[in-house]
Design a protein around this nucleic acid. Structure first.
Length: 555
RNA sequence: GUCCCGGUAGCUCAGCUGGAUAGAGCAACAGACUUCUAAUCUGUAGGUCGCAGGUUCGAAUCCUGCUCGGGACGCCA
């Protein structure tokens, strides 16, 4: 538990005790909420409990506030002073020493600063990307990849046990189309006439795979029967496609613990098992020659076919089996990261979870809204089919990994994202990524300077010498880091971390311009400031690491 | 037609379990480099939080209706 949290907990307890002592209300009153006011004039913590109790106690909020304050033991909670303000806020100004513990704690925890045990080791599986292996990853996939990865990092830091999984759709008709597409490209490349399948994949990746086969085997497949050729091309391109995806993701900094094959569900009879489970619950019926899942029982719009009249499964069927498999693996919680085009699919999946006998909240689906790409002020249309889509690979090459990842998680997952290529590419002050990285680099070179100038960067220091407003602001911000990480994790909101890191960088730059750190004439203060700088550096580095963004020592 | 997401400064967006005077970056304007990195800082200006009701001591935040933009609604995957 961080210093800040400890202080907060204690304060809550003291307030709670005081309320009981006033005798205004019984033992049963709302939980005490403390907020950190934006305005420093409102203290370090503010409580709104007096307003909340107004109705219960049938008294004016300010009167209640006064009664509570009268009962508060200031020394016990380390309170400097208390003020009652506005409609009935109780503002607490804490003694400074609670901030002084921040630096030693950060220096000691170092790379672990920010980690908490809030998740209590709960097992969470995050399934993300899971793109059909039929071509390159595009913009939308990249956003999902960045989001899923940073979310996983955050959950890990917050004390959850996280497993990252990629579900490979390697069993459906899209894989046949992939095989047919590669076959057509193969023949075309060798100068033969061949039509692409109707739902073929037109991306460059497909052509590259065909070329690779020619490189390896020459024209030996031209002679073979279509069946033999197709079968080979299908399996080959599936493997090649997956390898591409895995490599692109790895280069993007995204590594999965588990790649789960849809085909494995067929092999082990898991699909039949899942259907039987639904049947046992009475959620299955026959109509028009097909087998239906009664998903409307759990709030879905309409029932869903799981076995078509031709005897084959719909997309949903193996997916139900897949989720059953996941749940059987004993995760406390499943998180799926899906593209916005799949949002209509959420209700039926939630229904399936419940029909399988699990509570609805076992599965949480995070929908990633669309990415619109802009370049030169023009909207760039992205489509896997046209082959003109901007791929993750291109993005990494043109914009860089750091900026791409940062931009993708800096916005809430459920608002659409306008990705400005020119801005992300620009290595200038317009780009927030560099702003944060620059703060880190600045401290690094400063510490280097310190050593050159003969300061002992590991000297003992007296943190109570950090009395200027900017120093205090920095200390306060540093202390909030662990809480920010857990909040971002619990709300599945990585953008809270990008915001935090940006704010911390801003405070650092502001301090840097106002105060000189290395000052021969004030060695004690210099030692204290060096310690502060080290703490800031560690915190920025830890934040960037969670984002998967590098923390350069020089820029 | 039904459902999902969004509408906040000129632009792109934050805004927590409802709190005090709605924030940041960019763009605009005025300043700061003989100094530990000016990829920085300081200041100015910029708002009917889509609209209308409701709940509340208090609403950008919660509820209802409307509106605009995007998306999804298959025995496709």
């Amino acid at each position: 538990m961080s210093v800040l949290e400890q202080t907060e907990q204690k304060l809550k307890q003291v307030i709670s005790d005081a309320i009981v002592k006033t005798g205004l209300v019984g033992e049963d009153f709302p939980e005490i909420m403390l907020e950190k006011p934006k305005d420093k004039a409102h203290g370090d913590f503010a409580a709104n409990i007096a307003m909340q109790l107004a109705r219960l106690a049938k008294k004016a909020p300010r009167q209640i506030a006064e009664a509570i304050v009268a009962e508060i033991d200031e020394d016990e909670a380390g309170i400097e002073k208390i003020e009652i303000a506005g409609p009935g806020f109780i503002n607490f100004f804490m003694k400074d020493d609670f901030l002084l513990q921040v630096i030693p704690m950060i220096l000691e925890q170092n790379e672990d600063y920010g980690k908490t045990d809030a998740g209590k080791g709960e097992r969470i599986q995050v399934e993300f990307v899971s793109v059909n292996p039929t071509g390159d990853l595009h913009l939308g996939h990249a956003r999902g990849a960045a989001y899923g990865d940073v979310l996983s990092n955050l959950l890990e830091a917050a004390g959850f046990k996280v497993e990252r999984e990629y579900y490979i759709n390697d069993a459906g008709s899209q894989i046949d189309n992939l095989g047919l597409s590669v076959e057509a490209r193969y023949l075309q490349e060798l100068g033969h006439e061949a039509d692409m399948p109707e739902d073929g994949y037109y991306g460059q990746a497909i052509i590259d795979i065909a070329k690779k086969i020619i490189e390896e085997d020459g024209d030996k497949w031209v002679e073979k029967s279509h069946e033999e050729r197709f079968e080979y091309m299908k399996e080959y391109s599936l493997k090649a496609s997956l390898a591409n995806i895995e490599r692109d993701l790895k280069d993007f900094g995204v590594v999965f613990d588990n790649w789960f094959s849809e085909r494995s569900l067929y092999k082990d009879g898991q699909i039949d098992e899942a259907i039987q489970k639904l049947e046992a619950g009475g959620y299955i019926y026959e109509k028009d020659g097909a087998t239906w899942f009664k998903s409307t029982e759990f709030g879905d719009d309409k029932d869903r076919v799981i076995i078509k009249s031709d005897g084959t499964y719909t997309y949903l069927t193996p997916d139900i089996a897949y989720h059953k498999n996941k749940l059987d693996r004993g995760f406390d919680k499943l998180i799926n990261v899906w593209g916005s085009d799949h949002h209509g699919y959420v209700a039926r999946m939630q229904a399936a979870i419940q029909a399988l006998g699990y509570p609805e909240d076992k599965l949480e689906v995070k929908i990633i809204q669309m990415v619109n790409l802009f370049e030169g002020g023009e909207k760039v249309r992205m489509s896997k089919r046209t082959g003109k889509a901007v791929s993750l690979r291109e993005l990494m090459e043109e914009v860089g990994i750091d900026a791409t990842r940062y931009f993708f998680v800096a916005r809430s997952n459920d608002s659409q994202l306008d990705f400005d290529m020119d801005l992300a590419r620009s290595q200038s002050n317009e780009n927030p990524v560099y702003y944060v990285q620059y703060a880190h680099a600045r401290i690094c070179t400063m510490l280097e300077q310190a050593e050159k100038k003969g300061f002992d960067v590991d000297a003992d220091y007296d943190a109570s010498l950090l009395t200027t407003e900017k120093e205090q602001d920095l200390l306060k911000k540093l202390g909030e880091f662990p809480q920010t990480v857990t909040d971002a994790a619990k709300h599945h909101a990585p953008q809270r971390l990008t915001n935090y890191v940006l704010e911390l960088a801003s405070l650092l730059h502001s301090f840097y311009n106002a105060e000189k750190v290395l000052d021969e004439d004030a060695p004690d203060r210099t030692n204290a400031r060096i310690a502060l700088m080290k703490a800031v550096r560690i915190t920025i580095a830890n934040g960037l690491k969670l984002l998967g963004v590098s923390a350069p020592k020089k820029m």
